[in-house]
Design a binder for these strands. Structure first.
Lengths: 387, 387
DNA sequence: GGTTGTTAGTGCGACTTCCGGACTAATCGG
DNA sequence: CCGATTAGTCCGGAAGTCGCACTAACAACC
């Protein structure tokens, strides 16, 4: 009895090819599977038979009677929605958002709560764990159906230690958020930062669908970028790529939480913009109110957002010159503000090489404040699928 | 008779595994090949047999009698150096350098000639074709032994049209250098720009061996970067990634050949540095002389080079923040100037995030002015190997 | 309604590939 | 000179794939 046969590996490869194709393109007939994989109908039939008895695929009713005109209608075979669910957890600076999704990535339940995430790391993780358990209970899903959790943290993670870099979030020093949450929920937990997961979400579900090289920039209480190259997230040698917020744009600017002075983030992130606008208004401003004002065409708001966009766009122009991306997707709470995006576009056109500027789309993200939690779900699904 | 069987592909895969292992680790016994690939000795024997009759591998004499102590001595099998040669062509702004290498990448013959490449594109290509033919003749190698040519051009190439972007090199408007040289030599010609090929050379033979994420910056008459991510050159959506020289560092600086003002390139590339230094010296300065002065510890030279390094380093710090690379390799004619590299290191430490700065090595390239032509050779070999 | 044409899915025999075990080859130590 | 050890080869069996032939299910057309 051959043990680790290469032939078995071949069979396995072909099985994977079939399931991958079904995952990528949805239900399909055996004949189509054969054509697209290059395998013979016989082989596909045999593979599908195995997958069928193993319960990995199901035969849906014969879709449409035929394709071209005549002929026997195919029996469509579809990927069986795997049992179990995954959770996405988005730890923002001031909120905890949790989503429950089936393994096809369709979000079934979602919930947001306010929390002081920055200050009390372990408290926030307690809340997140409670929220996941609560959502499971509310949905009537047994706890052991939970297969994996993806988590979004508002700070860069070291690739090796998976810890948050000391210093940037005081309440998180030397904490590994993934390990902590894993301890609380007893399932695999995978963590990444907000910009990376926002990029992942826009790449799989949003404005960057189908793109290969994309820069996602998140503009909210901080400023960060998620960089997608060749269709995959670029995390860098130690996992801290994308720190676009700490480009220094003035020698003697405000002191930043990173320790430097004059970081871009101190000049364009939400707190600074509110600070700039507040004196001109009687009412207390919030990010939501600013977005309303911008939508109504308020001149001061437009000016401030546009200026911020230009500053960000200048940094993105340099990055675009280096990376030559297809698209820049603007996310975060301010990502939908038109003057901001217009400002970025203008600065990219002004400062990037003409050919580079011409090649790059600049668009708002399509997923809004749900981007991070959807990215966390995608992360969890990706890791479950990878085994 | 089965035609395009998956089994044949499996066989092929295993064949490749064997040759790849031999390429990576040198001569080896069949038994070792089996252990390292996970295939059985029987299968390896059969594969080696095929490769032997096909001439892709050779049996070297039995290396050392045995390994541990006793036992039959193995027959070492080694990759046969494939027949044929490849050429690398480096078109610089003022020179044409040509190298001939065997298919293992060992350069056998090399030659440099002065030429006004910028002004007369087709003339330079004529010269390059002549040089390749001349080298072949001098080495007594038949013309049809030439399998492919890699070419380095001193300007970005559009990925689709493979043409040089109009404007930056006046004598090259709408010319596809690869097509032109292919016409002259009647072999496949692959072209890329100088920074990309320098990066490729340092990656395969030089200071960046074994690295995954590297930024190679070329400092000579211009300023450009070759970006390696995940061990592969990143060319961007339209193939013009790496344009680090046209980061704008001053609103009202000199007018640049790209049409903007204040590009980094106008402030740190060789012509500007010579211009800055010349007034302080009686002799006419050249890049070579400046390197001598720097090596001798001349204060003014060190200052100018160090300042240039700081300017470049500042731009690289921003890029490093975004990409989090393992290494920055400084190449080009000025890449070996110690004050320049020190200046870059200082600016990276100053302007990049501390963790990013700590993760990145900043080193001179090891290949000097031969980097581009070696990269061109690597490009040619890579394309021949890929079929 | 029957016939023809087209496409889908499934057995069957043949071919390819791989593996394990048996066998031969070559060398070392005693 | 003989066991011990490792390398390489030969052979039979198992796994996997393919082409071909055959049945199944439909449409279109007479």
């Amino acid at each position: 009895m051959p043990s680790s046969s290469s032939l078995e590996r071949l069979r396995d490869t072909n099985r994977r090819a079939v399931t991958a194709l079904l995952a990528a393109e949805g239900p399909m007939s055996r004949a189509d599977l054969g054509r697209r994989t290059g395998l013979s109908r016989t082989t596909v039939s045999s593979l599908v038979g195995e997958l069928l008895t193993a319960g990995h695929v199901v035969e849906t009713d014969r879709g449409r009677p035929h394709k071209g005109g005549s002929g026997r209608p195919p029996l469509l075979v579809a990927l069986a929605t795997p049992a179990g669910v995954v959770a996405g957890v988005d730890l923002g600076h001031r909120h905890v958002r949790v989503a429950l999704a089936d393994r096809a990535g369709v979000v079934q339940h979602e919930q947001t709560a306010a929390a002081d995430v920055d200050e009390h790391g372990t408290d926030a993780l307690d809340r997140a764990a409670d929220a996941v358990r609560g959502l499971l209970a509310a949905a009537g899903i047994d706890r052991d159906q939970l297969q994996a959790v993806g988590m979004c943290v508002p700070a860069p993670l070291d690739r090796r230690s998976s810890r948050i870099r000391a210093g940037i979030l005081p309440g998180w020093r030397d904490v590994s958020p993934a390990d902590e949450l894993r301890r609380r929920l007893d399932v695999p937990v995978h963590a990444d930062n907000d910009a990376n997961l926002g990029a992942l979400a826009e790449l799989t579900h949003g404005a960057a669908r189908g793109c290969g090289d994309v820069v996602y920039v998140k503009v909210s209480s901080g400023l960060g970028a998620g960089i997608v190259l060749g269709g995959r997230l670029h995390r860098g040698a130690t996992g801290i790529a994308g720190e676009i917020g700490h480009v220094q744009v003035g020698e003697d600017g405000q002191v930043c939480r990173c320790g430097n002075r004059g970081c871009l983030e101190t000049m364009v992130a939400a707190p600074r913009l509110l600070e700039l606008l507040q004196p001109a208004y009687d009412e207390p401003l919030s990010v939501e109110r600013v977005l309303e004002l911008a939508a109504d065409g308020d001149a001061a708001t437009a000016r401030v957002l546009s200026d911020a966009g230009r500053s960000i766009g200048r940094a993105l122009a340099d990055l675009a010159n280096s990376l030559n991306p297809e698209a820049i997707v603007v996310g975060g709470s301010l990502g939908t503000a038109a003057p901001l995006v217009t400002g970025i576009r203008a600065a990219v056109d002004r400062y990037a090489q003409p050919d580079t500027a011409a090649a790059v789309r600049v668009v708002s993200g399509e997923l809004g404040e749900r981007a991070e939690v959807l990215g966390a779900v995608s992360l969890a699904i990706g890791r479950v699928a990878a085994g």
